[in-house]
Design a protein around this nucleic acid. Structure first.
Lengths: 127, 127, 127, 127
DNA sequence: GTGGTCTAGACCACC
DNA sequence: GTGGTCTAGACCACC
């Protein structure tokens, strides 16, 4: 994972796990690295990792089993909510930026459809 | 302007000027801050600013008159090209991200149209 | 390579590579010295060499592969253009100087032809 | 006068006077600056200027009248010789460079004639 | 004041 | 090892 300073590091850590869960790279029951491990690989202060893990526990994204480690425990509902939340952020950013450089909403939709075609379908549209 | 470390500083400076030009905040003939001024306000080394300005000169976004300053000199063609380039980047990022979290292209278009409505038109669609 | 202060060092470096390419001493695919190596041999700051290399990259004279080095990548078209550009500079300088010391153009041509003979052909004129 | 370090400074000083004489900017009888004046305006060590002036005196390009200054004293013969010498240097350099970038002598002559035309006659060819 | 060049040296990413 | 970015600061040329 690559960190930047656009937002707090612990937030970036959480968002990274969210992405992996929504994308299906991590599933309920999967073990994630220990805080110590994680802190070492990402070169981040262990306290920062602890804060991220604690918040994920509060949100019920993960659960910690003493002596065993930390595990993903997202329900389907939670995954759906996270997916919608991430989509909202992407949509918000996309709309604001396109408007700010002078595209009308209609133009933006048109450009989007064209770009999707030229980039090839994502396979989900096929029968 | 706020800097992060997601990309090189000199690149961020260039992109910021591009945005301002495409948005019409800066027009051909406008003088931009001197290298030293700019460096002071964004707290960056003058050499870094100079690199950004030099590359903008190469791209013919600006022209510099020694002893006088640096001036915007973008043609309409160049503005159009920059607008399209910026749109392409936004589209690319948006499409890739939405696909990666499991939206089909059709769903993405639908979500976009809904989000646009709920955020209010951008004024360009109205009569 | 010998540096003087008639023009910027980075320009002299670029011009030296141009000459070598036009003369065929360097060909597409050839690796040129690393920035550090070059800086040491000509006793110049690595940053100055990097600026020269970077501008050559922009001009598409070379391409750089991070971690591997910098390589000549001039097309035949580019070589022809560089050759003509160098010739133009030489011609411009020669004509201006000869005129300034009082030679008519006809006299200059005559002097040139005489000098060529006395210096021996360049081998390309012979049968 | 602009100095570079391509050759010894005193040589550059002499050559500069030669040029001015051959071009007619300086004529026999004209007074040139005192050594002290010259050293100040060109920001050069007075000893260097002295060496240049002394050599010009030896060559009989100038003569120094005690208490009055230094004066140009070139004969027509000397001017012709200097003109020819300067031409030789220009020719030598031009021929070598054009050959080195791959022009045959015939091509060089052709390019020269074309360049002379496109730059307009020097006025000496007219009736 | 303005921009242009250069040095010295740090730290990073990729190989 | 390679190139890429950035800082700090000097000195120059043009206005």
């Amino acid at each position: 994972m690559i960190l930047d300073n656009s937002k707090a590091i612990y937030r970036q850590i959480i968002d990274d796990f969210k992405k992996k869960i929504v994308r299906g790279e991590l599933q309920a029951g999967d073990r994630i690295p220990s805080q110590r491990e994680y802190a070492q690989t990402v070169r981040v202060n262990p306290n920062t990792v602890q804060r991220a893990y604690r918040e994920m526990e509060t949100m019920q994204m993960v659960e910690t089993l003493r002596g065993q480690g930390t595990f993903i425990c997202t329900s389907q509902n939670m995954k759906d909510a996270m997916k919608q939340e991430m989509a909202s952020e992407l949509l918000e950013y996309f709309i604001v930026q396109m408007r700010s450089i002078g595209f009308t909403d209609a133009e933006t939709v048109h450009e989007l459809q064209q770009a999707m075609e030229s980039k090839g379908g994502n396979g989900n549209d096929s029968v």
